[in-house]
Design a protein around this nucleic acid. Structure first.
Lengths: 244, 244
DNA sequence: CGGAGGATTGAGAATCTTCAATAAACGTGG
DNA sequence: CCACGTTTATTGAAGATTCTCAATCCTCCG
């Protein structure tokens, strides 16, 4: 049994802007169903040409790309409310793979009707572009980090970013604590460093009392120290994020 | 004297899709003027809140971000036809700076009227999203490169990507030769390596007869060797790219 | 109990960075 | 036309960071 858009639990969160009744009705016809994916399983494969795209209803995952010899880069982390597969919708095929880190449930939309959305609901089309621009911003941040931060700064930055996204999306259980289903290998591949070295940087942050990370949970012990270790310039809190 | 959209020289290129008369008229009212920027000068500053955004009519440049201590990452290279400042339009402020590498001339659009575009010309709104999605793809590629390629592969990959963009946009003078106004420091900052090491990797590619780079010109001497050195999987040629 | 996946640690090896010096190219003022 | 300052390119060498290899440990699960 699928959740009707009118009762979408994500929409209750303050972080998402609200839709008119008319728009909700459209979305409801737009929505083709739901998709369940198990932790560890692929959601979409790099290069695939799915006729669908998705919004994450619950759970988290990663976006990843690979070189032909297998070297892997985690491009981004996925949280509830994120749009998946827009690239396939616009560009014909997925330019990265998506993998579930926890069990995930996804809203399934028809790629064909994306065009109807643009024609009939320009405000929602605007939202789609907003999401794409935000995604672009996130990738730019990641690129700066991977290109110019030291290994320790990269790991600290990842923790800071992940926690922020967790809080914004409601995935985190508090401002400082969050379930952490990702492997150290995922962190290493996101930071562009080796697994061994990633582990050593995590140890360093632990030793200095900046974060705790065990039993699949992340705990920010000293937020200021973390920002410092991550070389972050404090950004103002994000505005409301559109949904679907 | 500014170029009317109807006579936009870029539109003549096969790589750009064509607009209806109606749309051209709209674009003409949308366009507020032209902007000239000298080589080396900033086009937009990171964090700025310009009421305008732009399409590049001629010339090339770079997008860059910086850490607060000055470490710089070149996020992307800009070619004719590229959209600049969409982020400021959607997100309120520029998330990266833009700098001219050659003299550039830009089309100036009003940020406020972007919304009118969405309401009145959904097909063009779709194009804007297409451009954003393509940009996102490019950043994903860059991230994979910076995170997982070796220094030599990174430099080779940059040459390959730059040449491809140059050819697609008409900036390159042939399939293998292109004016190259960027400094080695820009390449290093794009690859996420030091200037000294970037220079050594360039030397290595020269020594192996892969590229020539001097007098401000890049010459691909052996395209296959370049793809090999860059660890590229050959992508099919890009489809038509929308303009404005 | 045995196997698999993940985390941890030590150590030598490589890649890459920083420092430092020189060379080449170019525009400016005299 | 030349001297000079500025910017960019080039090269060598020492030093760091980061990587790879390899072993151990731990937890979970059938």
């Amino acid at each position: 049994m699928t959740v009707p858009c009118k009762k979408c639990p994500l929409r209750l969160r303050a972080a998402f802007t609200s839709l008119s009744t008319d728009e909700l009705n459209f979305m409801e016809r737009f929505k083709m169903g739901e998709l369940q994916v198990e932790a560890g399983a692929p959601v979409m494969l790099e290069g695939s040409k799915s006729p669908h795209f998705h919004t994450v209803l619950s759970g988290v995952g990663i976006r990843e790309k690979a070189l032909r010899d297998g070297r892997r880069q985690v491009v981004n982390f996925i949280f509830p409310g994120d749009l998946i597969g827009l690239q396939a919708g616009m560009l014909g095929e997925m330019k990265h793979g998506v993998e579930a880190a926890t069990d995930m449930t996804l809203c399934v939309f028809s790629r064909e009707r994306l065009w109807d959305l643009y024609k009939q609901h320009p405000a929602r089309a605007y939202d789609v572009t907003w999401l794409a621009a935000t995604e672009e911003h996130a990738l730019g941040q990641a690129l700066l980090s991977v290109g110019r931060r030291t290994a320790r700064e990269k790991i600290a930055h990842l923790f800071a970013i992940l926690m922020r996204r967790g809080v914004e999306s409601g995935f985190a259980s508090s401002e400082t604590e969050m379930r952490f289903p990702w492997r150290q290998q995922d962190l290493a591949d996101a930071a562009g460093i080796s697994l061994v070295h990633a582990n050593k940087m995590i140890q360093s942050l632990r030793k200095d009392g900046v974060v705790r990370l065990d039993d699949g949970a992340l705990d920010i012990l000293d937020a200021d120290a973390l920002r410092e270790a991550a070389m972050m310039d404090d950004e103002p809190a994000g505005e409301d994020r559109p949904l679907l």
